[in-house]
Design a protein around this nucleic acid. Structure first.
Length: 575
DNA sequence: GCCGTTTTCGGCCCGACTGTTTTCAGTCG
């Protein structure tokens, strides 16, 4: 029975939700949540770890009990204790818990008093004004519940925004805030600053002269749909897009500690606070304190320093070993946008791209690239106008001519060749051997079993002309999951066959995930970062791939397209 | 339920805001 880390993490999340409604010890609830988070951050699959006999209690937040529960889930596909809890409380309560303003205590009262077990029943009760009669509830709460239900329906359940999409809203909002009279610093903190692939909500920190003016202007921003709260230090709005934004006004003196606190992640902050505690200190958004004395607060660096740590960049703040690395001065120097010397996946009008090769080359020259690879689709991908043998030959001719014309950039001859169901490549070796490199990917037969899917890709990697596995899991964030593969085996095989995996920078893909990037780094496999551009504008997406790589602990030397053309070709060479 | 150079029990982050109640509990991040 295939059980993935995300499923185990979800089960522990549900356990936490239902236990909380039940009124269980809050620290027990937290233990489940910590366990869920810890699992979702793992680079290796628990399934493989169990079969290899790894001691799961080595994982932070996993003790004897959760370790046994993980094994139970992997063996049986479910957790008996959760099933028992679901008999006590309807599963629909978890949906109610997700509505803004409703926490475990209120949900339990609603269930106990009015027998409300799902969102529909909740809506009816609110519309009948039954809820305001309950002690602790009132007319305003009822109104907020209806608003909350509506917001969830409009926004869609658990909807997070793609980083690139959230960025659009954030840029115009921060411009607006910067224009408010008396505003000094404006910084977007939270998961946006950590460059997560998706963003739940936005935290903006400002320093200013007059708090009231800023809060007033903020809640009256033209794109506001609802003002959730407005106070002196914190206000919350929901934009018309459904994106929630918190604005926090802080003193310049505590800017660093506030930035640290509101950038998170929560797990990172918890570790920092425990280090502080061991040293007899206390960390809050106002500073790092010894008794009442504030030792440091102005910059993040100063707070880290008081904890005996070197500065940790936001992308690494997930409690994935970054604190330990900082303590030992072993933090990696992460790859940056200007390390990139070329782009190894893009499409032209030969297949489904919207620009000519020449236009792509001109755009790449403006970006200062030393090389690009033109990687149109191969024939199997009919929908995208995949290239047949003769089309490829024609394209190679055009590229040869262009290469004669330009002396500041090299156009690498390549193709995004489809990996067929049986693991063979969609074009024969005699044409592949004419190319400088191949970018290989799966587009069809996404539903194969884990064993078959893995076997398919391993077989393809045995082909002597296989260079880069593009968008390795085929996911589309928020729309389509990953194909089921054993990534450890794929990475092993890539190393063995001198192949590489791609970080696809396309905002909807960002494939590899940060966890898989870390796995590749741990296993010593190099990656490429490519935009998969279908137009000249898409070439600018490289930054999103860089973000992903940085979250995956990638250094410049781990990325093949940080190399000069000469070094790159050397790396691609098979023995 | 997890964790541990104060290790097998006792602690586990805490401050802001809202809505209800009348001094504070619940929620959120």
């Amino acid at each position: 029975m295939p059980v993935h880390n995300s499923e185990i993490s979800d089960i522990f999340g549900k356990m936490a939700d239902l236990l909380e409604i039940k009124g269980a010890n809050q620290f027990r609830v937290r233990a489940y949540r910590n366990g869920a988070l810890s699992i979702s951050n793992l680079s290796k699959s628990l399934r493989n770890m169990v079969s290899e006999g790894v001691d799961l209690t080595d994982i932070e937040g996993i003790g004897k009990d959760l370790s046994d529960k993980i094994k139970e889930i992997i063996e049986t596909g479910y957790l008996e204790e959760l099933q028992e809890l679901e008999l006590e409380f309807p599963g629909g309560l978890i949906d109610i818990l997700k509505i803004q303003g409703l926490g475990p205590k209120k949900v339990k009262v609603l269930y106990d008093e009015l027998n409300i077990g799902n969102v529909d029943e909740l809506r009816k009760a609110a519309e009948n004004n039954d809820i305001r009669k309950l002690s602790g509830f009132g007319a305003k709460t009822e109104e907020n519940i209806l608003d909350g239900i509506k917001a969830r329906e409009e926004k869609g359940e658990d909807k997070r925004f793609l980083f690139a999409k959230a960025e659009e809203f954030i840029l115009s909002l921060t411009e607006y805030i910067k224009g408010i009279n008396g505003v000094n610093k404006v910084t977007v903190a939270g998961s946006y600053r950590r460059r997560k692939e998706t963003i739940g909500d936005i935290d903006i920190l400002v320093t200013c002269k007059d708090r009231d003016i800023v809060m007033d202007k903020f809640t009256n921003y033209e794109d506001v749909n609802k003002v959730v709260s407005q106070g002196n230090t914190k206000s919350t709005i929901i934009l018309n897009s459904g994106l929630q934004v918190d604005l926090r006004v802080v003193d310049g003196e505590s800017y660093g500690s506030a930035l640290l606190y509101f950038t998170g992640s929560k797990a990172h902050n918890v570790v920092l606070r425990s280090i502080a505690k061991d040293k007899g200190l206390k960390v809050s958004e106002y500073g790092i304190f010894k008794g009442d004395k504030n030792l440091a607060s102005k910059t993040e660096e100063s707070v880290y320093k008081k904890l005996g740590l070197s500065y940790i960049v936001p992308e690494l703040r997930e409690n994935n070993g970054e604190v330990e690395a900082s303590k030992n001065n072993q933090l990696p120097k992460l790859v940056e946008l200007n390390d990139i010397k070329g782009d190894l996946q893009m499409h032209s009008h030969y297949s489904d791209g919207s620009n000519t090769i020449r236009e792509m080359v001109e755009a790449a020259r403006k970006m200062g690239y030393e090389y690009i690879a033109i990687t149109d689709h191969s024939k199997r991908v009919t929908m995208a106008g995949g290239l047949k043998r003769d089309d490829v030959l024609k394209q190679l001719e055009e590229i040869n001519k262009l290469n004669e014309e330009y002396d500041d950039i090299t156009i690498l001859k390549s193709i995004e060749v489809d990996i067929l169901k049986d693991g063979t490549l969609d074009l024969s070796d005699d044409i592949l051997k004419e190319l400088d490199l191949t970018v290989c990917s799966t587009h069809y037969n996404r539903n194969l079993s884990r064993e078959e899917q893995t076997k398919r890709i391993l077989a393809a990697m045995e082909n002597p002309y296989f260079n880069i596995l593009a968008h390795p899991t085929g996911r589309i964030i928020g729309k389509r999951g990953e194909i089921d593969v054993d990534m450890e085996k794929i990475i092993e095989s890539a190393k063995k066959n001198n192949c590489f995996l791609e970080i696809n920078a396309y905002p909807k893909r960002l494939d590899l995930s940060d966890n898989y990037c870390r796995l590749a780094r741990e296993m010593g496999l190099k990656l490429s970062i490519s935009t998969d551009a279908h137009s000249i504008n898409d070439l600018n997406n490289m930054i999103y791939g860089i973000n992903q790589a940085r979250r995956g602990w990638q250094r410049p030397e781990d990325i093949i397209n940080t190399r000069s053309l000469k070094e790159l070709l050397q790396l691609l060479k098979k023995d």
